[in-house]
Nucleic acid binder design. Structure first.
Lengths: 232, 232
DNA sequence: CAAATCAATTGATATATGTCAACCCGTCGG
DNA sequence: CCGACGGGTTGACATATATCAATTGATTTG
């Protein structure tokens, strides 16, 4: 693993505070691999042998049941996924596939559990990270249960706008069919939802979104930190 | 706090392995209180000053947005709630109200965080509990996004049946309007959904459910451990 | 006991969302 | 350049779900 990657991983909240030799020993057992796009990295139901870290590229977490499929989340550099399964030594609840060419680090789960017991700072970081993940899913659940698809899209656009720096125009960070799945609707419906937001000053050209009337959209979307603020 | 309650709390997975004096010191700062039914214990958005433990009765976790409300989960004895907010020292994401007369223990959040740093076994238990909570929400999310309301009800009944011991007939553990909210539908729709399951051998009288054709219902519901098995 | 209350149900209807088929329009490879 | 392909869009339609209003039936309360 190149030195710069090593240092980038070290900087993750999860690893930043732990003792040097514990981090080194975690990394010693780690693999780093490049994957092409559209590769299924893990499959739900399988045992969780590795904690995964996305170094570059992006990964889609999705689930299937009875022939249907839904996108649960997207993982972008640099962050980890399936920490909970690793900690519990339980089967994956979600599958993961690369969305593009990606570089992934794999840390054996048993090493993570061992270091967890040995390093108080790491343990604290794991707990904080898990609590964060938990709260994110609760927010997503509230979004799903309390809002219509139009409201979900409106709030998604506001979040994305903020994430992109706050300018009136910005790019969607992934293709619309996947956005539809993340938001819990069909691609056709998403297309109509974009039209449904036109009266509130939203215009779309390809992946480029422009919010022409910020106040109007916010009045409609009614964003709420307890649902839309991912930092708390 | 009566000795029997003290011992019951001690037996919770979260506290079972920790050192005696750490547990004692946690409990020293704790309050125990009796609440009547329909009391709002916590309100979403407020700071998380206490970790709560339901000793008897039951508590509804719910959320609101824009005048709508949805039930997120029910907490029954003996277990804790809002662990994640306590650990992160972040605002509650859900409100909680007693469903019936309930006895609740309150442990100051800062004590929990302090003992977490001091007791490795407690830390490990907290992580396991959080990972469990996280996975439960992921399952709930899959349930919501991948299934229709009829399928959700069918699988709920199968889970409830198993929880009640597996007999063909059993009681719903709470009122239908709340069940509807938990399943993400209106009470009217739940009523129709019960009718929709009649062809699969489900009959309902008040809160009593009878599954007359187990195989038929399961063939329709297609239960899946990665969604419906709460233990893993 | 009678009145009031509230959960549950039912029917009629409106709205939201999904499905299917067709089409448009870029991109990519021969 | 052409044609195949795939994502996106659109329209027509079907289905799922919510809403509203009315009724029932059980429970509570004065």
């Amino acid at each position: 693993m190149p030195d710069s990657e090593y240092r980038d991983i070290r900087k993750l909240d999860l690893f930043a505070q732990m003792a040097d030799d514990n981090f080194t020993s975690l990394m010693r057992g780690a693999y780093v691999q490049n994957f092409p796009a559209q590769i299924e990295l893990i499959t739900e139901g399988e045992p969780s042998d590795f904690l995964h870290i996305v170094i570059s590229g992006s990964v889609d977490l999705f689930s299937t049941w009875n022939g249907r499929e839904t996108s649960m989340a997207t993982v972008r550099p640099i962050s980890t996924f399936i920490l909970a399964a690793t900690i519990k030594d339980a089967p994956y609840l979600m599958s993961a596939r690369t969305l593009e060419k990606s570089r992934i680090a794999l840390i054996p789960s048993q090493d993570v559990r061992a270091i967890f017991d040995a390093d108080m700072n790491f343990a604290r970081a794991v707990v904080t990270e898990l609590a964060q993940c938990y709260r994110s899913v609760i927010k997503a659940q509230k979004d799903l249960k309390l809002r219509t698809s139009l409201e979900r899209l409106a709030n998604y656009l506001l979040r994305q706008q903020r994430h992109a720096g706050g300018a009136a125009a910005f790019e969607l960070s992934f293709e619309k069919r996947r956005l539809a799945s993340v938001l819990g609707m069909t691609p056709e419906n998403l297309s109509r939802a974009f039209k449904g937001l036109q009266p509130y000053g939203v215009s779309v050209t390809g992946t480029r979104i422009s919010i022409d009337n910020q106040a109007d959209l916010e009045r409609f979307a009614k964003p709420n930190p307890l649902i839309d603020d991912f930092s708390t």
